[in-house]
Simulated assay, not measured.
Amino acid sequence: MKVLVVHNRYRSEQPSGENNVVDQEVGLLRSAGHDVRLFERRSDDIASMSFVGKATVPLRVPWNSAVRTYLVEQLRADRPDVVHIHNTFPLLSPSVVAACSDARVPAVATLHNYGMVCPPGTLYRDGHVCTSCVGGQPVPAVRHGCYRGSRVATLPMALSTAVNRRRWWSGISRFFCISGAQRELLVSAGMPGESLVVKHNFVDDPALRRELPGEHVLYLGRMTEEKGVRLLMDAWSVADVGMPLVLAGTGPLSDEVASWAAGRADVQYLGLRTKAECQALLARASAVVAPSVWLEAFGLVVVEAMAAGVPAVAPAHGAFPELVDDEVTGLLHPPGDAPALAAALRRVVAPARNRELGDAARLRYEKEFTPSVGLDRLLSGYRAAIG
């Protein structure tokens, strides 16, 4: 099969799970013998633009005519069987959907977040879950400045959401939702259910897997409020787990986390780590904690933990209830509840129970989240779109 992947890569200064998913899918398809080509833009390139170029980036968020022209030319030259669209913000824009229609090439799109119904794609505002724009126009997002706390920065995203919604819904043959929870919310917002299929992200089988007993509880991810970092700090302060907490990642709360960790003998903050270093940390973990207070559309770190045979502790909302079998492959706790999170952390590291949970997590990975399962679901969606 001949596939063209369309993606606006996120800035390299902050690790992107979405970039990783795109790279893994491209590698998977190529290893299976498919011809995969790329049509990309990189957010890193904005820094090297002229003053005028930088100033006009927001104007191109809702619609980029030049990209439409370039993509049509490439489609007519390469004649792919299908186009797979990922992120279009900020340099590509939904004009890529029109380009596919112009060239009469079927298109699919992976919905990595909630951008179809929420301009910043997070369903999160002022420390709580927000669905004010779901099912309606994104006026509340502008009023509250939901993107970077700025009404001006939010306006182009809101405009793009409002004016391109129907184009997305009519121009894309198949939307890949990365969880059933995400699909359910999008259907309730009015998206065409017949075009939405669930395709969980897959994870490569790691070279390192856990050898009991684990040495630490691991948080692996961005240091942001919505990821539940402050909730985790509150819970750990009363948890008395009996082993250290290790945190790896970077983000706006990095300094706060580093300061908190420096005052505790049972916490270690490592900052940003390479992929190999993260895999080594996973292989030595007794449990992974993913305390997100927003509605995660997936939860890649939980599946990475499964692959390593490590149980996870996560909140019972968003995609986590379909990823974590409560009391079987890990533990769920009420969202935003620090004492409940602390109690779950104490329970998950109990040696006998920990082994059972980890073994079950690995079995779940082997059934549902391997590259072979991911390839089957990906190709099935492509064939449906082509048909």
Rank of each mutant, 00 (worst) to 15 (best):
Q24D: 15
H84N: 09
M116I: 06
V303H: 05
A235Q: 04
Q74L: 10
L295G: 00
R104F: 15
P58M: 06
L363H: 07
G271T: 13
S188M: 13
M233V: 14
V52A: 15
V26G: 07
S95H: 02
G318D: 00
S372L: 10
S65A: 07
V22W: 02
T56I: 10
V348N: 02
G249A: 04
S292E: 02
S150K: 08
L220C: 14
H7M: 13
L4P: 00
Q74M: 11
N8Y: 03
T329A: 09
P291V: 04
G271K: 14
T224V: 15
P140R: 12
L270E: 12
T56M: 11
V26Q: 11
R353F: 10
S43A: 12
L375M: 05
F89M: 04
G171Y: 01
V97S: 03
F369D: 02
L75G: 03
D325M: 10
G193R: 07
G53K: 08
K2E: 09
N8C: 12
R346T: 11
H84Y: 13
M306K: 10
V288I: 08
A314E: 00
A319R: 01
H7W: 08
R346Y: 13
G17N: 06
H7E: 10
D81C: 12
V302D: 00
A99T: 08
Y382M: 12
T274R: 14
V349N: 01
V303A: 08
Q182W: 11
L272G: 14
T250M: 09
A158P: 01
I386H: 14
A343Y: 03
H216I: 08
G171D: 05
R209V: 13
G17D: 08
L212D: 12
G309K: 04
P62K: 01
L29V: 06
S50E: 06
G242W: 11
E225P: 11
